[in-house]
Design a protein around this nucleic acid. Structure first.
Lengths: 155, 155
DNA sequence: TTTGTTGCAAAACGTTTGCAGCCTC
DNA sequence: GAGGCTGCAAACGTTTTGCAACAAA
C-alpha cells in the first residue's frame, strides 16, 4: 500500500511551522494546540485559558501568543463578531462553513452552501493570493422576528 | 409623471426609524448622519468624532450612541477587521462590495463579483430572514508575497 | 413636565507589553 | 551558554457606563 501524500496532523504541521520560522517547540505551545483540537466549534482566548487550567497550566499571555502563531500557521481561524471577544476555531478537519448572525440577539449559526463556496473559490485576484475566506450573513432569527413585529405594530 | 415609490433619503429613513422606535430627533444625531454620508469609504468612531469637531461639536459617547442607532436602522454597516478599531461605512448609495484582507500587512481592498453576489442572494434560510452580508477573503498581497518568499527560502 | 439624551470623566473590557527568571536549542 | 519563551502584573486603546444638566416631546 502506497503512502504518498499522507495528510499531516496538526501537531506535525505546527512542528514544521515552528522549525521553518525558527521558533522554539515548547510544551506550552503543544498543550494549547492539543486542547484547541479537542474543542468543537468556537472558543475565545479566555475560555481556552480556563480550559487549560485543568491539565497543563499556562498563562493568558502565552495563550494569546500561541493563538497568534497558530493563526499564522493557518491551523486556526479567527472571527470578530460584533460586541464579543475574538472567536477562534480549528482550521483542519472542520467542514468549510459560513456564519449567519442575528443582528438582534447575536446568535450565530453555521451553514454550508456549495454554490457560494464555488463562486468564491473561482474568484481570481490580480495582485492577491487568497487562502481562505469568512462569510457573515446578517439578519434576524425566528425568535427575534416576533419581537420586532411587536415593536413595529405598537408604533 | 408618477412618483410611486420615490427612494427615501438617509435623513428621511432615520426620522422614520426614530419615530418608530420612540427615540428623540436631536440635532446631534442628524449632524452625525450627515457627516457620515459625506464620507466615502471606511471610518472609525474616533475619526468621525474628530471630523465632527469642525462643524457640529458632539461628544465621543454620542458618536458611539448614534452609530448604534444607525446600525440598527440599517443606514450604516460595521466591520471588525483584526487588530483595528471597528470600521463603519454608509449602507445606502454605495455599491455592494466585498473585502480582501492581507494577513501579513492588514491592507484591505474592496472588490465586487457578480457571481458571488448572486450565489449569496439566492441562499434561502429556513429560520432566518437575511438582510445583508460581509465577505472577507484573506490572503497575501503582492508586496507581502515577496517578503514571505524570502523567509521560506532562508529557512 | 417628563424622561430620553447629552457631555464629561471614570470604568470596563479584551488584548498587549515590559521584565525577570526559565528552558530550548 | 545564549537568547527565545514564560508568567505575572501593569499598561494600553477602544468602547461602555454613571451621573448631573439639558432639551425634545
Amino acid at each position: 500500500m502506497k503512502e504518498e501524500s499522507a495528510p499531516l496532523s496538526p501537531t506535525e504541521l505546527f512542528t514544521d511551522y515552528l522549525i521553518r520560522h525558527k521558533h522554539r517547540k515548547t510544551p506550552e505551545r503543544y498543550a494549547i494546540l492539543e486542547k484547541i483540537y479537542s474543542i468543537d466549534g468556537h472558543f475565545n482566548a479566555e475560555a481556552l485559558y480556563e480550559l487549560m487550567q485543568n491539565d497543563y497550566r499556562v498563562s493568558l499571555a502565552t495563550v494569546y501568543n500561541t493563538l497568534d502563531l497558530l493563526l499564522d500557521a493557518a491551523l486556526i481561524v479567527k472571527h470578530q463578531f460584533d460586541g464579543q471577544p475574538a472567536q477562534y476555531e480549528k482550521a483542519l478537519g472542520a467542514s468549510m462553513h459560513n456564519h449567519s448572525v442575528c443582528t438582534v440577539c447575536g446568535r450565530i449559526k453555521e451553514f454550508t452552501d456549495k454554490k457560494i463556496f464555488q463562486a468564491i473559490q473561482a474568484k481570481e485576484f490580480a495582485n492577491f493570493k487568497s487562502s481562505h475566506y469568512s462569510l457573515y450573513v446578517y439578519g434576524v432569527c425566528k425568535k427575534c422576528q416576533k419581537k420586532k413585529k411587536q415593536i413595529n405594530t405598537n408604533l
